[in-house]
Simulated assay, not measured.
Amino acid sequence: MNTGQAHWHILGAGAIGSLFADALSTDGRQVSLILRDGVHGKIRTQAVERGDLVSEKHFKTTGPRGHTGISHLLVTTKAYDVCSAIDSVVHRLNPDCNIVLLSNGMGFQEQVLASLPSLNIYCGTTTEGAHLLAAGHVRHAGSGETRIGRAAKIADDRRPLWFHQWERAIDNSVWDSDIQPALWTKLAINCVINPLTALNRCHNGELGASKSLANQVAPLRDEIAAVCRAQGHAEIAEALPRITAAVIQATSDNRSSMLQDIDAGRLTEIDYITGYLLEVADQHSIDTPLNRALFEAIKSRAH
Rank of each mutant, 00 (worst) to 15 (best):
H58Y: 03
I193A: 09
I179Q: 06
H303T: 14
S71M: 03
A188Q: 10
L53T: 06
V90H: 15
D157N: 13
V112W: 01
A264Y: 02
Y276S: 10
T125A: 08
A155R: 10
W184G: 13
V100F: 05
G12Q: 09
L259K: 04
W184M: 08
F163G: 07
I270C: 10
A21T: 07
E269D: 10
K78M: 05
N200R: 15
S173Q: 07
P64W: 03
A182R: 11
A21W: 02
Q249W: 12
M258G: 09
D261K: 09
A21R: 11
A79H: 09
A245L: 00
R29I: 00
P195M: 00
E49N: 00
V217I: 08
A198T: 03
V247S: 10
S210D: 14
G66F: 00
Y80S: 09
G124P: 04
V82Q: 07
R158T: 14
H72V: 05
V82E: 10
I236H: 15
V54K: 01
T126G: 05
L119V: 01
R242W: 13
L220V: 06
R147G: 03
A135N: 12
I34W: 10
V48A: 04
S300A: 15
E223M: 01
L259E: 02
R242A: 15
L74R: 07
